[in-house]
Amino acid sequence: MATDISDMPPAGKLIPRGHGTKECMQTLTELPRTADSVKKFRHQTYPEPGEKRLCYAFVKDPDRSSNTMGVTSKASLQAGALVNPPVQSAFQKRLQDLKDSLYFSKRRAPLGSSHDQSHGLPLGLDPLDKRFGIVNKKDISAGELVSPSEALSPAEEELAATLYKRSHGDYEVGEVIDRNYDWSRFTRDSLYGVPTPHDNSGSGVRTALKWCKNQGNVTMKKLDDFRERNRPQIGKVHDPIEETLYVHINRDHTFGVTVIPDDYSAGDLVQMSGPSAFLECPSWHPGLLVTIRQHLKKNTFSKFGELLDGLNQKGSNGKADPSDVKEILYQFQVPLDQDMAELLIAWSSDPEGGGVVCSDLVGLMNWMEPVSVDISNRVSERMKEPVGLEPSKVVLSDAY
């Protein structure tokens, strides 16, 4: 069946037509109006031609005549009155002079006259008649000096050349400079020094340029010493500070502290030997005290002032009972085991009885200050006969 083509819609998309050239060329009769809520703000920034600038807060105010911002300027003198002031009468001028006479500058330098300097000059010196300086005598002109009209005589030329040499040092080539020495003892042609041998063949120059038979690199001694000191060399120990170190000490000097071995070794620790075989201390040993103080320092215990106050409060007359001392050490959480606490109590105990001396105990524990000589002597005397402690069974625990 044949289909009528005229009834079929055209292919493609239908785009609506907008304004054509004719509508674009026409002038709009009415522009879009600005809203009143926006106009009051624009009126302050962009006022209409011929209108006053008005703050947007006063736009709807009916009494606009009183809405004036700023300060009213007072009327002042006009420029014409300042340039051409009115002529004063004789009375007005005299009255103005009397008013100006009060000023010091008016009396010292009146208008139309020079400054009076007579008060600062010596007595009898007239500034109008007195003249200072030397009167210049008129001589030939500058043109005559540059281009003299007459030729100079030989004597005048020699005098002028001598003066020019003296002022400008302009000597001729090879001319001997005369420094006005006293030639009464020596002649002017005297020669000084030792004659230098001369060879026209130039052998002396060749010797000076080739003075080294063995051709080698020439270096500074300071640079060579630096390289020898800082670069390792084969077969030698590299010691950069050897020169500065062995100036004050001998080469066989050994640094450090010699550690004297005891009868016990690391095998005793591995085999977990008994406390009695761990370390023997027949008398008071400073090494134990150093170990205790280092352990307190490692654990950052520093409440020695509070510890001394607690011990004094617990005891009386600066002494405390050993059981009370152990209780105070436990309350302050002193990082010491029982054996080390017993050792410190034994060192600080009074041999005549009465308990533990609190100041001596804290002085031995205070690692922030050195042990005083008095405490050290007292502890040494006490440890000759240990009280309440068997020195053969002093144990250093794993905490140390």
Rank of each mutant, 00 (worst) to 15 (best):
D4F: 06
A11M: 08
K13L: 15
L28Y: 06
E30Y: 09
L31F: 09
P32N: 11
R33V: 12
V38G: 00
K39R: 13
K40Q: 13
R42G: 06
F58D: 15
D63A: 07
T68G: 00
V71Y: 04
K74D: 06
L82G: 00
A90M: 05
F91W: 01
D100L: 10
L102C: 03
Y103F: 13
K106N: 13
D116G: 05
H119K: 12
L121S: 04
P122H: 09
F132Y: 14
I134F: 11
K137L: 13
I140K: 09
S141W: 00
S141H: 02
G143T: 07
S147A: 13
P148I: 05
P148S: 10
E150F: 05
S153Q: 09
A155W: 02
L159C: 03
V173T: 10
V176D: 07
I177K: 14
D178P: 03
T187M: 04
R188I: 09
V194C: 02
D199E: 12
G202T: 06
G204D: 07
R206G: 02
T207V: 06
K210F: 12
Q215I: 12
V218P: 00
R229D: 12
R229Q: 15
G235S: 04
H238K: 11
H238N: 11
L245T: 14
Y246D: 08
I249N: 04
V257N: 11
V257M: 10
V257R: 09
T258I: 08
D262I: 01
Y264S: 12
V270W: 04
G274T: 13
A277K: 12
S283C: 04
P286Y: 04
G287F: 10
T291Q: 07
T291P: 00
R293E: 02
L308V: 00
G315R: 06
A320V: 15
Y330N: 09
F332S: 07
V334K: 04
Q338M: 03
A341V: 15
E342N: 15
S349T: 15
S349N: 03
G353I: 09
V357Y: 04
C358S: 15
L361T: 02
V362N: 02
W367C: 01
P370R: 07
S380K: 12
K384E: 10
E385C: 00
E385F: 05
L389G: 01
K393D: 06
A399K: 08
